Amino acid sequence: MQITLVDANLTISASNLLSATLRTDLVPVPTSLEFTVQDTEALKKALVLGAKVTVGEFGATFSLIKVMPLKTQTVKDDRRVGGIACVAIPEGCNRLIQAVDNAVILDQSSFNAAYRASGAKISLGSDLPLPEFICLKGSMPTQRLALYMQQEAAVMAFRNGKIGAYKIDALFKQEVAQKFDPSAVVWFNSDKLENMNKASYVSVDDDGATILGDGDTVSSQKIIQKAGLTSRQLKNMNKVLIQRGTILRPLTTTIQAGDLLEIESKNYIVLTAAHLVNTGALGGATATASKFWIGSL
């Protein structure tokens, strides 16, 4: 996994890289990078908060939001051997993980407009209409975006080099990225866990008497009342991607969250994709692997 520090024009060598995890999810900030390097003078100078980082041909430029020194008791060449642990998110998304200073209230807008109004300095590659968006002063934009994504039965995904908003139904209509044998999957078979992750949402209409929403639930499933939502929004909130299993494969960075997989003639969406590299530069085992969490409606 080739990691380059853009500002310093420095590529982290395999001898200095200890571990790296490139991750994609279906959340408001849908990709992140975590890596640990050896504590050298050049890297210590280059790895500062806000520094720009790229990963091979992944297509995203990341910005460091966490830089933490890791010290050991080993001494080499009169210096304590240690590392530097870093976390980075896509450049321009930093304000989305900070509480807003002013209220953001939009009407008949879009997810792209909500992103920009919340402080993001990027434009979405794929957009969807958004009837309203409210993020009060002191609220976290990512939490509010996640709420409205659920009301629109939508997810955020990093695709084709850009963050975009996508309908859940649209993800199942795309071309299959790859087919897997069922033996490659560690399946989750638990009705209790599924019921914990799914709920039915209801509301009361303006007349104060009509109940809106789907009351078709099992006895162990939650029913949650939400005020001020339409039947369409309540129906969307009932549409949930439930985790069905995990797949562990050799490093396969071509598969990302949001991709469609086919397993025994059934389609599943990649909920999370984590690509791991352990170089063993300071000893220990090396590893290169990808793990996918898959789900369906």
Rank of each mutant, 00 (worst) to 15 (best):
V176L: 05
T31S: 14
G284V: 00
L18H: 13
V53K: 05
A257H: 13
L212A: 07
N112I: 04
C135G: 06
L33G: 08
T36V: 15
Q73G: 08
A146E: 13
M68L: 08
L145A: 04
D25P: 03
V27Q: 14
E152D: 01
C93M: 13
G125N: 04
I134M: 10
E91M: 05
G119F: 03
S200I: 06
E132T: 11
Q256D: 09
S200Q: 08
D216R: 10
M140Q: 11
T288A: 14
I224Y: 04
A199I: 04
K137L: 00
S219K: 10
K226D: 02
V176N: 05
S265Y: 15
L5N: 12
K137A: 12
S219Q: 09
G119N: 00
V29Y: 04
D7I: 03
V185D: 02
I122C: 03
L18V: 15
D39R: 12
A117I: 03
G213T: 03
R79F: 08
K167N: 13
Q2Y: 06
I65L: 05
L96A: 01
I163G: 06
L130I: 06
N236K: 00
W293D: 05
Q243A: 15
T253L: 14
R249L: 13
C93T: 13
K192D: 09
P30Y: 11
Q256C: 14
I242L: 14
A154P: 11
P250C: 02
A42F: 09
I211G: 00
G138K: 05
M68I: 06
F188Q: 11
T4P: 00
L130K: 02
I89R: 01
Y166C: 02
V6F: 03
A60C: 05
